[in-house]
Computed example of a mutant assay.
Amino acid sequence: MTQTQVILDQVVLIKVDATIYGARKKLNKEDLVLADGSKLPPEDLASLGSKRLLDPDRLSVFNRLKKEAERICLRVGTRFLGGFIVPVSAAAQVTVELDRIARDFALARAEFLDGYDAAVQDWMVKHPEFAGIIEKAIDSVALVATRLAFDYLVVSVALPEQMPIQEVERLESKIGSLSEQMFHEIAVDANLLVEQSLLGKEQVTRNALRPIKRIRDKLDGLSFLDHRVAPLVATIDDLLGKIPNRGSIEGSLLQEILATAMLLADPDKTRRHGEGLLAAQALTLETDVDAEETLDQAEAEPSVLPASAPVIAVTVSDNPDFTNLFDGIFDDELEAELASDDWALEVLLDKHQSERKTGHDADQDQAHDSDQAAAPRTVTAGVDEEADDSDQDYWF
């Protein structure tokens, strides 16, 4: 099964179909009263535009409901082929909200149609000099009713069994761009959070951080689109876990929240941060595995040396050819992948590195103590304890 099909099996496509009456008509030359000698430019040079047939505020409810439906889909999904790709697990929740939007739209539609004639009359009263051109362009209530509608459709997307290779590649390219679209939408939400709620603030309330929770849930639901998402979700979970249950948020915690939001507001840095976190996790896992193998090997060795075996004392510091040979071999590689010229990224990476180092040092100390407790002590002339423990440095 291809990666494209794996993704398609986990999502549905939701198409929101909202038709909203524009209440506009083309402005004609005869609608204008020109002064003597005035001349309009020809149509191939400029167009006259349109004229409103009623107060646009009376239609604002329909535009608001349409945008709300789109936000509901974007909260857990991302744009795709004129609709929204939504995880199968979240589809039922989304359709419940869209059903509510449909009911609200129907009520607003009925109310608008009942007051349509009065709305047109009010508009002409407001513009008495142009009442004639408004009246000539008025649409009937029956026609307006056909231009106000809301509906949605939920469909599954799959690769056809018989399909030219070029079409398969085109669809796979579209599917491959889903993660890029997702990171872009996350960046838009994060930038709004920074500009409207965080930037320049000395303290904020818990309510100001709701966008971060929504961003976290969206990333978690669409984590199958990009392998770099999972560590980002873990980072946000760690941050949300530090937020107090009550009281204002300020100081270093607020700075960490700002740094996270600024990172998420940059799609490129967000992806790079995810890659860096994955690299750090892989390095830590490799180190832990090597340390565990070294411990298992030490436990499996004989506890008493044969009497005939010569005892050789070797001190690492006495061997200049191998001293510090492997010092820093992984540090440069890790620093190169985690480097960033952005303040927000540096804050998060420094924090992550510090936590990783603390946890790793604790694990190494525990393993070292375990070796010392389990290994037998053989007293040999000319061999001190430091030389006996020198093998513990060679975890590789």
Rank of each mutant, 00 (worst) to 15 (best):
S38Y: 01
I212A: 12
D238F: 04
G82N: 11
E167A: 12
V188M: 02
M262D: 07
H184R: 13
E169A: 12
K357L: 06
Q297C: 02
L199W: 04
K67N: 08
A46H: 13
R71N: 08
Q372T: 11
V16C: 06
V229S: 01
N28T: 11
L98W: 11
I257C: 02
L240F: 05
T235V: 06
D388R: 15
R79A: 10
D342A: 09
T287G: 10
Q366H: 12
D341K: 07
V316A: 12
V316H: 10
V229H: 12
D389T: 14
I138G: 00
R210A: 02
D9W: 00
T205Y: 12
D288F: 00
P41V: 13
D388N: 04
Q121V: 11
A35H: 11
T19L: 06
A92W: 00
R64G: 11
G132H: 04
D331A: 13
R64V: 12
L8V: 08
E346R: 15
D36T: 15
D393F: 04
R214S: 09
P56T: 14
I212R: 10
D238C: 01
R109M: 06
A279T: 10
S308L: 01
A158Q: 15
L219A: 03
V304A: 08
V304N: 03
S60A: 14
W343T: 10
G200F: 00
L349D: 12
V383I: 14
D122T: 04
D296Y: 06
K218Q: 13
Y152T: 05
L232I: 15
Q162W: 04
D220P: 00
